[in-house]
C-alpha cells in the first residue's frame, strides 16, 4: 500500500468519524442529508459483498467493517434516535434516491467487466458513490446553513477522493497491468463534483469567514 492510498483511507475514515461524532455528541444532524447517508450505506453494502468470502488483509476487512458499521449507524441515528431525528431537515432534503439508484444500476448492467451478480453490484457501488454526495450538496445550497463540522465532513471526503486519484496514478506507474477504467472514470467524476464546493470552502477559509454558498 502506498502513502496516497493510506492517506485516502484515513481522510475517508476521518470524514465518517467527524460526522458520527458530531451527531453523537451534539445530538443534532442539522444540515446533514439523510438521502446521501442512505446512499453511502447502500454503496458499502453492495461493494463489500465479498467481505466474508475474499480475504485480502486484516486492514481491509477491518476498514470494511468500520465503513459498514459507521454508515448504518449514521442512518440509524438520523431515522430512529429520538432526539437526533428531530433536528433532521426533512422538508429541505427532498432529493429522490431512485433518480440516482436506477440510472447507476442500469449503467452497471451495461458497463461491467463480467455480467455476474457480484460484479454488477460492485460496479453499481462505484457509480453510486460517484453521485451519492449530490443530495448533500443540494441540501447545503438550500439551507445555506453550513456549520464547521458539515464543512469539514465534505472537505475530508473530497480529500479522500483526491488522494485516491494520486494512488491510481502511482500504481499505474509502479504496478504492471494496472489499468481499471470503471473505477477511474467513476472516481474522477466524483472528485469533479467536489470542485465547486472546494472553491467556496477555500475562499471562506482564506478570508477566515464562515462558509456560505451562493444562492
Amino acid at each position: 500500500m502506498n502513502i496516497f492510498r493510506f492517506a485516502g483511507d484515513m481522510t475517508h475514515l476521518a470524514s465518517v468519524l467527524v460526522l458520527l461524532l458530531k451527531i453523537h455528541t451534539i445530538k443534532s444532524c442539522a444540515g446533514v442529508s439523510l438521502k446521501t447517508q442512505e446512499l453511502y450505506a447502500i454503496v458499502f453494502a453492495t461493494r463489500y459483498l465479498d467481505i466474508f468470502t475474499d480475504f485480502i488483509s486484516l486492514y481491509n476487512t477491518f476498514m470494511k467493517l468500520v465503513f459498514l458499521g459507521s454508515s448504518f449507524s449514521i442512518v440509524w441515528y438520523m431515522r430512529s434516535h429520538k432526539i437526533v431525528r428531530r433536528s433532521y431537515d426533512k422538508d429541505q432534503d427532498t432529493f429522490r434516491h431512485y433518480f440516482l439508484i436506477v440510472p447507476c444500476l442500469l449503467l452497471a448492467m451495461i458497463i461491467n467487466e463480467k455480467f455476474t451478480f457480484r460484479e454488477v453490484l460492485w460496479t453499481f457501488s462505484l457509480f453510486l458513490e460517484a453521485v451519492a454526495i449530490l443530495p448533500q450538496l443540494v441540501l447545503l445550497q438550500r439551507t445555506r446553513n453550513i456549520d464547521n463540522l458539515t464543512g469539514q465532513y465534505i472537505f475530508l471526503l473530497g480529500a479522500y477522493r483526491a488522494f485516491y486519484i494520486f494512488n491510481w496514478i502511482y500504481r499505474y506507474f509502479t504496478e504492471p497491468h494496472y489499468v481499471h477504467w470503471i473505477p477511474w472514470i467513476a472516481g474522477l467524476l466524483q472528485t469533479l463534483l467536489y470542485g465547486d464546493f472546494f472553491y467556496y470552502y477555500f475562499h471562506s477559509w482564506k478570508n477566515n469567514k464562515k462558509l456560505q454558498l451562493p444562492a
Partner: peptide
Amino acid sequence: ARSGVTKDEL
C-alpha cells in the same frame, strides 16, 4: 485482471 488488484482498495 481486476480481481485481486482493484478489490484490494476500499
